[in-house]
Design a protein around this nucleic acid. Sequence first.
DNA 1: TTTTAAGTTGTAACCATTACAATTTAACAA
DNA 2: TTGTTAAATTGTAATGGTTACAACTTAAAA
Lengths: 144, 144
Amino acid sequence: METFVELLKTHNLKVTQQRLEILRYVESHLTHPTADEIFQSLTKKYPSLSKTTIYNTLETLTNAGIIQRLTICPTEHRYDFNHDMHHHFICKQCGKIFDIHFTCPNVETIEKDILKDGHRIEEVHGYFRGKCKDCLNKEGVKNG
Amino acid sequence: METFVELLKTHNLKVTQQRLEILRYVESHLTHPTADEIFQSLTKKYPSLSKTTIYNTLETLTNAGIIQRLTICPTEHRYDFNHDMHHHFICKQCGKIFDIHFTCPNVETIEKDILKDGHRIEEVHGYFRGKCKDCLNKEGVKNG
DNA sequence: TTTTAAGTTGTAACCATTACAATTTAACAA
DNA sequence: TTGTTAAATTGTAATGGTTACAACTTAAAA
């Protein structure tokens, strides 16, 4: 039935309309939205929704491991539903983030190395920076 | 001789006292300092140094590929001299960043995959989040 | 239904970073 | 050495994402 309700309960989080909406939004928008983008979209339907709630909820869901916070963008945080383990490519020019559905097969070896140091790993992030296909093409046209 | 002078010239950057000092600082402090930490340290010796210069220079050096900007910390940027390719582990509790001198041997396979999509890779970042050895130990003592 | 800890809301503040315009300077050429 | 100019530096003011906080509301258990 209500998957998201179950999901929240599983993580010992109170079920509220706000949390469900935010969760639904992030799960269905694979565009790595910012807090503001989520707010701008949801505020149309729920005018009483507060931006602070967006921030609080994103923090809560991140801590629970339900979503992940991307610190790839230098100016703002982006959020991503934790579907499966994957990495990211961010374009320096247009800022668009692309999912990289390929993870290092040796990540466990690295993790063992870190564990050997005594640290406890809770998140694994990989990201690549550069110029995306679209921006390269635009330049190609412009510069011959 | 003056390695940093050469380094700047190689990248077609004007050689200024400010750039040399900032470069020297980042190269010799492997603590992944913030712009403010660099400023607080250098302002003692060079009171006329402006914080804007710190930001400008870090931006310039990052674009040149001489240093790298870490966006691991959610609240502020950290900088790292580009000695060799390595990854990072950041403690969620104390915020300290540890160097991970081990990179994915299959990173080139991933890169080929990204290149196949048409994107151009300019930076590769890997980071792990969790609780560091020191923070775990402190908790261990406290909780028996 | 009552209770209460937890969640939500709006406002105000915070603070890292950037914009901008004036001043200074590195680097090149004469 | 001197003059020239584009680039770098500086200080101040503004920006904007995020957080602090206190009042209000509500989910959920008794």
